[in-house]
Design a protein around this nucleic acid. Structure first.
Length: 299
DNA sequence: AAACAGACCAACCGCTTCCAG
DNA sequence: TCTGGAAGCGGTTGGTCTGTT
């Protein structure tokens, strides 16, 4: 027995949302808040599935969304967070105010992946990708392995003969040799002969620089998990919200502040009669925003 | 100017997780 | 503790845009 569909799909509309639908959804949520998404379409007069409404709201209509390409700083954060969290886009998005998981996922797949590959880094593992020369060396090492094994065995035999002749071995010396082994293994994990195209520190955000504002005492030796619960500062907090991608008038003005641009759009969307005085106030007053370099603000 | 290919991204699908009863 | 519904999440799809031939 299969699972019941999230909604009765008969007669439901799919595909891109129209301005009219957006307007209905925004009006409804501003008046009633986010309640049971399943009920939203009926109550808002939409022929959409609740899930679709939720996605449209969270990914596109939410007033606190940032729009436009990710900044270089945000991109670095995404890379750093991805190295720690993997494809947990919502977790990553939670560290980037105003960005959605969908947006970050798309940006990762279309931009960052390519950049990392160009840099010789595997976007999934964040490790250096094998270059042809390195692959050749690896193969060669494997071919030489049996011969080396034989040589090692012979050497070991000689060493054992010498060791048996040595009557006193201090604990300190034993520890030293153990530590030496460990360091050898550590080197194995990153082949120093394989000169990377890009040094790791050139790609990843240094933890110490990232944490300075919120946790000034942390050091670069700490786990990058310090990102957990961390607030990041100094983001651009501007919006370039265009309902239509084709409306390039606003785009050409570069970043237009949320308050000029967003409110205008919202006025249009929430008022049939275009009376801007009526507009947002009573509806939006419930929303509180918070720029990182500012006090919380209200509509 | 037309055809095509690749890039981009909004939206969908289906699985997982959460939570109330 | 179990169950079923709702929400959350990540992978994928498909339409549109843009650049190239």
């Amino acid at each position: 027995m299969g699972r019941q569909p999230c909604c009765d799909k008969v007669g439901l509309k799919k595909g891109p949302w129209t301005a009219e639908e957006d307007k209905k959804l925004i009006s409804f949520i501003l008046n009633n808040g986010q309640c049971c998404w399943r009920a939203v379409p009926k109550l808002a007069g939409l022929l959409r599935c609740g899930k679709s409404c939720r996605l449209r709201w969270t990914n596109y209509l939410r007033p606190d969304l940032k729009r436009g390409l990710l900044s270089e700083h945000e991109e670095k954060m995404v890379i750093e967070l991805h190295a720690q969290l993997g494809n947990r886009w919502s977790r990553i998005a939670s560290h980037l105010p105003g960005r959605t998981d969908n947006e970050i996922k798309n940006h990762w797949n279309t931009h960052i992946k390519k950049k990392l590959r160009k840099m010789g880094i595997d976007p999934q593992t964040h490790k250096l990708i094998d270059q042809p020369q390195q692959q050749y060396e690896k193969q060669r090492q494997q071919q030489l392995q049996p011969e080396r094994q034989k040589q090692t065995e012979q050497t070991n035999q000689v060493v054992m003969q010498i060791q048996s002749a040595v009557t006193e071995t201090t604990i300190e010396e034993t520890e030293k040799s153990y530590l030496f082994d460990l360091s050898e293994h550590a080197i194995d994990s990153f082949c120093v002969d394989d000169a990377p195209l890009v040094q790791p520190h050139e790609i990843l955000v240094s933890p110490i620089s990232s944490c300075s504002a919120a946790t000034p005492s942390c050091t670069s030796s700490e786990s990058p998990l310090i990102f957990e619960g961390l607030q990041f500062w100094n983001f651009d907090w501007h919006y370039d919200y265009n309902y239509s991608k084709n409306n390039d008038n606003n785009r050409s003005n570069n970043e237009i502040s949320f308050w000029e641009n967003e409110l205008t759009n919202w006025n249009i969307l929430t008022n049939d009669d275009g009376d801007s005085n009526l507009a947002i106030d009573p509806l939006l007053s419930q929303y509180t925003g918070n720029g990182f370099d500012q006090e919380p603000w209200n509509f």
